[in-house]
Simulated scan of single mutants.
Amino acid sequence: MSLLSYLRELLEQRQPHPLLVENRRRFAQFDQNKPLTDYSFVVLDTELTGLSYKDEIISIGAVKISNMQLELGNVFHTLVRPLNLKHNQATFIHQITPDQLRAARPIRDVLPEFVEFCGDALLIGHFLEIDMGYLNRATKKVLGGTLANPTIDTLRLVKAYKETSYVCDYGYCDQSLPCNLNEIAEEFKLPRFKAHSALEDALQCAYLFLFLAKKLNNGQVQTLRQLHNVGQPLLLRQN
């Protein structure tokens, strides 16, 4: 066995950080049947050095929703210093420079604070699979495990909303409709925020989530389970 393989095996075997032990305990018996107003939500976004496996998180932004209302005074936003501080193509998108990142804290210092911020909230994001992939890879490396918080992807909710709305109105759903967060916000006439800023993208996603939660199923979505079910593919809902 190589030294690298041995170190990876040791990492996988180590006990999770107490924060993750508590995180798992909170969701060991999770009830989806309560009203949406009974849950807390954290809407998050990350900025990355790129989208390959070697790339890293360089910014995390998150806002909280309680009682289905946005808590504008309760946000999480920080830059994260990556191992690789070189310019790359992603720099032109998010406009975060290596000079800005040199003064930032590394991911090992940021993650415990972010896990505490998330607490017992459900995690929401747009195309959340990407963000959670990088976050869970980091938490596994730094804290010894992955987050247990249930997740909601607004992209999936948008598709469900368009399926039901457009099929009812026009008899079909145009699958070419935009899936980009900012294009959707413009289409739905939501408040607009700066793109490619982790905090402002999180705010944009939060407004989108609140809009969809009220509009889905003609406003009849009251519980988390109903929200989950309405997000299923239309064909499955008909069975």
Rank of each mutant, 00 (worst) to 15 (best):
R25F: 01
R25A: 13
R26V: 05
F30C: 06
F30K: 15
Q32D: 09
L36K: 10
F41R: 14
V42R: 12
V42E: 04
V42H: 07
V43D: 06
L48Y: 09
L48P: 00
T49L: 07
L51C: 04
S52Y: 13
Y53Q: 11
K54A: 09
E56S: 05
I60V: 08
A62F: 00
A62Q: 06
K64W: 03
S66K: 15
N67D: 13
V75I: 13
V75M: 10
F76M: 13
H77L: 02
H77N: 15
R81V: 04
L83E: 05
N84P: 02
N88P: 00
T97Q: 09
R102P: 00
A103Y: 04
A104P: 02
R105G: 00
I107H: 03
V110N: 04
L111D: 12
L111E: 11
P112I: 11
E113Q: 12
E116S: 12
C118K: 07
G119H: 11
L123V: 10
I124F: 01
H126F: 01
I130R: 14
D131G: 06
D131Y: 11
Y134W: 06
L135T: 10
N136A: 07
N136V: 01
N136Y: 09
A138R: 13
K140S: 05
V142H: 12
L143W: 15
L143V: 01
G145W: 01
G145C: 03
L147Q: 08
N149T: 03
P150V: 10
P150K: 14
T151R: 15
I152V: 11
D153Y: 05
L155T: 12
R156G: 00
V158F: 01
A160P: 00
